[in-house]
């Protein structure tokens, strides 16, 4: 019974569901289309990397090391290396590896990292934020205090500190009562470090929207009809507070991709020879004047990915925020 009340209040007055309405506006929004196309392109390219550039992105080939993008090379140079103008469109790196292949494979690391880290931090952050906002009292005080502590550090600094504390290389550890040991690779450790920096953001956003919803009519109505607090929290408050979380989630993926690259650049994330974008820029950084392509292409990849997620996040905010409904 109670759920009927909740749903009907959330429905748009024009007789369309919120989701339908949002979707329609989403596809009318040019920013959304742009963001989505950039991201789909990148995601498809990384998924189909083995088909687009068959080969091993880790294998050195010292005979063709540090070649500029082959379409910029003279015919004589191409002949000398026995390659064509399109053999290495992005050039090769210090080890003679195809840079295009490495950028494509690098997308797998960065995008997966973004997704996993955000899912991890949103699931923890959302629950804590929901509990804090809905129940208030001492739980709220403790959680907010924790958030304040975490937010006191700039995100990337905290990530660097955590990643350094976890050390280099593979970390093995055993939890009590479990028969197997856990192994964390450097990338996974960097992921955990970055995820932790994202958690307080999600706690804060969830808590804020829960507090505003807690006193709204439809929640009060559910309460007065006798719904228990847990049911009210999960079925009425949370679904209606989702849109800011969804927006932040999209934006956070971009941040995580960037932070991951920053850690990789500092040597704290992916270890060589993994084709991680940040680590690739770091490799090329020292040779920027003689071989700029080493950093330019992975840099472009990071740029496009982050721009893609940010455009998408912006568009989602335009679409999902009821106050902006008639603006577009």
């Amino acid at each position: 019974m109670a759920s009927t009340v909740g749903n009907s209040s959330a429905k748009a007055s024009k007789g369309q569901s919120l989701a339908q309405d949002a979707l329609k506006r989403f596809f009318r929004n040019p920013t959304a289309i742009l963001g989505l196309s950039i991201l789909s392109l990148i995601i498809l390219m990384t998924i189909f990397a083995p088909l687009l550039r068959p080969g091993d992105p880790l294998k050195s080939n010292l005979k063709v090391r540090q070649l500029p993008p082959s379409w910029t090379m003279s015919q004589a140079d191409l002949d000398k290396k026995k390659i064509t103008a399109w053999t290495y469109p992005f050039g090769t790196d210090v080890q003679g590896r195809d840079l295009l292949m490495r950028v494509l494979y690098g997308g797998r690391i960065s995008l997966r990292a973004g997704l996993v880290a955000v899912i991890f931090s949103v699931s923890i952050g959302m629950v804590l934020g929901l509990v804090a906002g809905f129940f208030g009292g001492w739980i709220d005080i403790v959680i907010v205090w924790l958030v304040d502590v975490l937010l006191a550090f700039p995100g990337i600094l905290l990530a660097i500190a955590l990643a350094s504390a976890l050390g280099a290389g593979t970390l093995s550890f055993q939890l009590p009562f479990l028969p197997f040991a856990f192994e964390l690779s450097s990338i996974e450790k960097a992921l955990i470090a970055i995820s932790i920096t994202q958690i307080p953001i999600f706690i804060r956003i969830t808590r804020a929207s829960v507090i505003s919803l807690r006193e709204s009519e439809f929640v009060q109505a559910a309460k007065s009809l006798g719904a228990n607090p847990r049911r009210t929290m999960w079925l009425h408050v949370l679904p209606n507070g989702l849109s800011p979380i969804l927006i932040q989630l999209t934006l956070s993926i971009g941040t995580v991709v960037l932070d991951m690259a920053a850690l990789g650049f500092l040597g704290l994330g992916a270890q060589p020879p993994a084709p991680e974008w940040g680590a690739m820029i770091s490799d090329g950084f020292g040779r920027f004047r003689s071989a700029p392509w080493l950093s330019i292409f992975p840099g472009l990849a990071i740029f496009l990915t982050v721009v893609g997620f940010n455009l998408l996040g912006d568009a989602l905010r335009d679409v999902l925020d009821p106050r902006l409904k008639n603006v577009s």
Binding site: L58, K59, V94, Q271
Partner: peptide, 20 residues
């Protein structure tokens, strides 16, 4: 180190690159 590790992987020695 990366070049050596790549060569070692050719013969089945899978060497994780480490530094400190």
């Amino acid at each position: 180190a990366e070049a050596i590790a790549s060569m070692l992987s050719e013969v089945g020695i899978n060497a994780e690159l480490m530094t400190e």
